[in-house]
Every structure is written in C-alpha cells, then in structure tokens.
Computed example of a mutant assay.
Amino acid sequence: MNIDFNKSQDGLVPAIIQDAITSKVLMLGYMNNEAYTKTVEIGKVTFFSRTKNRLWTKGEESGNFLNVISIKNDCDQDSLLIKVNPVGPTCHKGTDTCWEETNEQSFGFLSELENVIKSRRENADSKSSYVASLFEKGINKIAQKVGEEAVEIVIEAKDNNDELFLNEGADLLFHYLILLQAKGYALNDVVKVLEGRHS
C-alpha cells in the first residue's frame, strides 16, 4: 500500500477506526510509517502517540485491543480507514466510541421504524394509532396480520404489477417488525441468526 507520510510535516497520517460489523466510527488516531508497519505485523491497531511521543498499541494497558480486519488508503494516499473487531470499549473513558455513542448495529430507516413502533406501543392511544391498536389486540392478531400480508405478497409475486408487489413487501416487513417486538425481539436478533448461518 502506497501511503504518503510526507504530506504532513510530522510524517503522520490520520487513521479512522471503524467497527467492521456495525460500521460505527470508534475513534481517530495518527500513524507514522513505523506504527502502520507494526499494525500490519501484529494485527492490532498501533498509533503514534503525539502526547507520549512513541508507538502505542491501543489496548496495551487496558486489554481493549482493536483487532484489524482491513485497511484502506484514501484517494490521496494520506489517510487510512481501518476496520476492526474491538475488544471492549474503545474510548479511554470507558465508552464504546470516542463520541460517547453506543456501538450497536444500525439498519438505517428500518432501525428508525423499529423505534417508531416501540414509541407507538408504549405511548400512543390505541384509538389513534394503528400500531398501538394491534398490540392491544394481542399476539394472535399481529401474527394473523403477518400471515395475511405474506399471502398477499405471494399473490402479487405471480402478477406483473411491480408497484403492488413492492407495497405488499413493505406491508409484510412492517408487520413483521411489529411481530418481532411483540415477541420481545428486534431486527438485530434476526440478523445475528443469519450471520451465524453464514459463518
């Protein structure tokens, strides 16, 4: 890998550390050529500490190592993206990230939708909220709705109306997220099962 350590006067390049599974940015550090070489050799992220003025392997005192999964150089060859498998919290303050974020997997809009469903279940009046009314009717009604939506998507899959097919898919997914919460689970629990099958 051709890394341009000479672009800065101190010979350091920024290294963005990202969780390989959750894609959360965990921290930012700096590497010189020696730190990069050691990182590759031992498979654990090693920085050049500007305060200690020496190489510093993250976790050398705490045991919270950052095990390297991959390293990429940017288009200007002067910054690195390092995907890792973190052992324990990353920040020296004990938080998952240096921005005090929880290092949990997010599924973008689907995670937002899960939060909306949870909020409606906990806070909304069943007379004004479709989601709340389903939870009030119980698990049998929710499971029935999932079954109905599953049948409808099968029917639409046999036709040629893409819009109806996609809408039925959205309905099925929406009601499945409701069913997951009714059973005490979340989308992440299903993903873990799929990941287990994949490995």
Rank of each mutant, 00 (worst) to 15 (best):
N2P: 10
N6F: 04
D10T: 12
P14F: 02
Q18M: 01
Q18K: 03
D19T: 04
T22R: 00
T22S: 03
K24S: 06
V25Y: 11
Y36K: 06
T37P: 03
T39H: 06
V45L: 07
V45A: 02
F47I: 04
F47K: 00
F48S: 01
S49L: 04
T51S: 15
T57W: 10
K58D: 09
S62P: 08
G63T: 10
I69P: 00
K72C: 10
Q77H: 15
S79I: 07
S79A: 15
L80W: 04
L80Y: 07
L81A: 05
L81K: 03
K83V: 03
P86I: 03
P86Q: 02
G88I: 02
P89K: 13
P89F: 15
P89H: 14
C98A: 02
C98F: 01
E104A: 05
Q105A: 14
L113C: 03
V116H: 12
I117L: 13
K118Q: 14
R120H: 13
A124S: 14
D125M: 04
K127F: 10
N140E: 15
E148N: 07
V151L: 15
V151N: 11
E152W: 03
K158H: 13
K158D: 06
D159K: 13
N160G: 12
N161A: 09
D162W: 12
D162V: 12
L164N: 14
E168V: 08
A170N: 11
A170T: 10
D171H: 11
H175F: 15
L177H: 01
I178H: 05
L179C: 07
Q181F: 03
K183M: 15
G184T: 08
V191F: 09
V193C: 10
E195C: 01
G196R: 01
S199M: 04
